[in-house]
């Protein structure tokens, strides 16, 4: 597998990698490239260095014995001074006292670890709950948008125009739901292929005699819009509709060689 290293670096993927915001698959991909291309590895280190600089500047003073405190907290060993007077007769009660305190210490440690385990389980469950709630609210939003669109399509004033595939893309198709009263159209673009990067679909209202195209809008964010339904305004007395592929941002006039679909009103 070979890639354009410069382009890959310029994409911003490595910045997100350092932030920890890539998917597991993307993480693996970055690591794979970092091994294959030293330039990528170096770039990752440079980006990390930037974040290290910012976080360092934001640091409070750190106590000199900082690590000693941590070491004390993480050492499981309970310091135990050996009894020098082994030979002396020690009353049985003393041994019992020691034994009891050792058992207590073990008990306390056991409770501490159990508690820590439970805490991390709760944390995990909370994270899962949050992510499920997020998904749910996302889904709800999407359903609302779709229901709204469906309502509009079902309106009795709506005319449906089927757009058929043209020379450049014979298998593609689209539908226009036109509400003349409200001067709105909904484009169902499910039958169009994903536009290449840097390009976007543009929808045109056409008058046939003489042929006059008027742009009514772009199908922006085509990739991320999974319903592929787009609402646009149309104040024209359209006789036909067409969809062309144009450079991002759209064009003044349609590029007819890139006409994907076309259909006449009432045809």
């Amino acid at each position: 597998m070979s890639i354009d290293v410069k382009e890959y670096i310029a994409s911003g993927t490595l910045e997100l990698y350092v932030a920890g915001e890539l998917s597991p698959e993307e993480n693996l991909e970055v690591q794979h490239y970092a091994i294959q291309y030293p330039e990528i590895r170096k770039e990752i280190e440079e980006i990390e260095k930037t974040i290290l600089e910012i976080t360092k500047a934001a640091s409070p003073d750190i106590p000199k014995d900082g690590f000693q405190k941590i070491r004390a907290e993480i050492s499981n060993v309970i310091p135990f001074a050996p009894d020098r007077s082994v030979n002396k007769k020690v009353p049985l009660g003393n041994y019992l006292g020691w034994a009891a305190s050792v058992i207590l210490a073990i008990g306390l440690f056991w409770m501490y670890t159990e508690n820590a385990k439970l805490k991390s389980e709760i944390e995990l469950t909370n994270q899962e709950k949050q992510s499920i709630e997020d998904t749910l609210s996302d889904t709800q939003d999407r359903i609302n948008i779709k229901e709204n669109m469906l309502q509009q399509i079902r309106d009795k004033n709506v005319t449906v125009i089927a757009l058929g595939g043209q020379t450049i893309a014979p298998t593609s198709y689209a539908k226009v739901y036109w509400n003349k009263e409200e001067q709105k159209v909904i484009i169902d673009a499910q039958g169009l292929p994903e536009p290449p990067t840097g390009f976007t679909y543009q929808v045109w209202s056409l008058k046939l005699d003489p042929l006059t195209p008027t742009s009514i809008g772009l199908l922006d964010e085509f990739r991320s819009q999974d319903s592929k339904l787009f609402a646009l305004e149309n104040t024209n007395e359209s006789e036909a509709f067409g969809i062309t592929l144009e450079p991002e941002g759209g064009s003044e006039t349609p590029t007819l060689e890139q006409l994907y679909t076309l259909g006449a009103v009432g045809a």
Binding site: I51, L52, T55, I62
Partner: peptide, 19 residues
């Protein structure tokens, strides 16, 4: 240590508590 304490301090904005 400085980086981690710094990242915490950006959010918590209280040096003693951040430590």
């Amino acid at each position: 240590a400085e980086n981690i304490c710094g990242a915490i301090n950006v959010i918590v904005k209280d040096s003693e508590r951040s430590q």
